[in-house]
Computed example of a mutant assay.
Amino acid sequence: MTTRIHQLAPGAPAQRLDRLLASAWPDLSRSRLQALIRGGHVTLAGQPVRDPSLKAAGSAEIALAEPPPAPAEPVPERIPLQVVYEDEDLVVLDKPAGLVVHPGAGNESGTLVNALLAHCGASLSGIGGVARPGIVHRLDKDTSGLLVAAKNDAAHRALAAQFADHGRTGPLERAYLAFCWGAPEPRRGTIEAAIARHNSNREKMAVVPEEKGRHAVTHYAVEELFGDPADPAASLVRCELETGRTHQIRVHLAFVKHPLLGDEVYGAGFRTKAALLPEQAGSALAALQRQALHAALLQFEHPRTGRIMRFESPLPPELEKLRAALRMCAPAHRPERKLSS
């Protein structure tokens, strides 16, 4: 149990208790403070208060008996992690394909959250009063690449705000490398199409009319063509997100008829194209057993220091092997049309 004390200044104007304490202790979210007040953990002039909207004024002392973070429901598990960067506020990871981020139905254990609970241990100060990592963005189970998680409430709020803004006004930047069938036309452009849950298959997402879904924008640029430049078998495309919808890149590329290689959910109709690839490329694709998508770039502002943090992740070995095999679809072509990075 940790006790915090805040002394009201004589003559200060009356304020709601939750707002006053949020200003005094910015590392605690207002919702967390409201829960603590309602739970009887706050006293004003020595008397317990349970109403977050109570107006506090005068020169009284406010005390908060902050309980230790409650144990997280997921069980810590010693799962190997590739940590790219870590400090007292956050941890940046290079997630392998096949690792689920959050526990859920059918995945109660063996997730990234389980692994982070074991890895971070006592350094987790609690997100919303619970000893857990603060996941501010996700990668699909079968997508590899960079992901950041917060280790305390203040970092979680600051990072969540950056991801909610999607880099429109701040330094947040995310870029993905995607291997897709054929190549989008034009070779550099923007896919803007709303996304919602599929009508008949609730595990899928789909492009829908704007008024029926969530606005979604993906900027793309073809980085490499595999095969005849006039009619490529496949291409390597760099995608940058202006929004962050579930399965966004997978859904958008499928919508423009260039689904990801290996995507059994959104590219099942392209399975027969694998037979047209050179033998080595077909074997590399068959061995992949996941969508060919990698989160290659992550940039954000550090929530405590304000420093711009930029991380890049090379293609994992299985995608490098796929690229090398696809280059046998001669003649290969590499257009100089990269997005800014």
Score class of each variant (00 low, 15 high):
Leu319Asn: 10
Val251Asn: 05
Leu326Thr: 09
Val100Met: 03
Pro48Glu: 07
Ala158Met: 02
Leu17Cys: 08
Leu21Gln: 00
Glu88Lys: 05
Glu242Trp: 05
Ala150Phe: 13
Ser59Val: 01
Arg250Ala: 03
Gly134Lys: 12
Thr246Leu: 09
Ala324Ser: 13
Val222Lys: 00
Leu159Arg: 06
Ala206Leu: 01
Ile135Asn: 10
Gly145Val: 04
Gln34Ser: 09
Gly11Asp: 01
Pro316Leu: 07
Gly39Leu: 01
Ser283Gln: 15
Ser59Lys: 08
Val84Tyr: 03
Thr3Asp: 13
Leu116Lys: 02
Pro184Val: 02
Thr190Lys: 15
Ala56Ser: 07
Leu81Trp: 01
Ser235Ala: 15
Lys151Gln: 02
Phe226Val: 08
Ala97Gln: 10
Leu241Ser: 06
Pro314Met: 02
Arg168Asn: 02
Ile5Phe: 15
Glu242Arg: 15
Leu116Met: 14
Asp228His: 03
Leu172Asn: 04
Pro171Cys: 11
Asp228Ile: 09
His219Gly: 06
Gly106Lys: 01
Gln289Ser: 14
Pro68Arg: 03
Pro69Ser: 12
Val256Met: 14
Ala332Ser: 11
Ser283Asn: 08
Leu28Pro: 05
Glu320Thr: 13
Ser23Glu: 11
Gln162Arg: 10
Pro67Tyr: 13
Leu90Gly: 03
Gly262Tyr: 14
Leu326Asp: 07
Asp94Gln: 11
Gly213His: 00
Asn199Asp: 14
Lys204Cys: 05
Phe311Leu: 05
Ala118Glu: 14
Ala160Phe: 13
Leu339Cys: 10
Ala286Ser: 15
Val265Cys: 01
Gln82His: 15
Leu20Cys: 13
His252Asp: 09
Gly282Glu: 10
Ala275His: 13
Val83Ala: 10
Lys321Tyr: 06
Glu224Ser: 12
Ala35Thr: 14
Gly189Lys: 08
Ala274Gly: 11
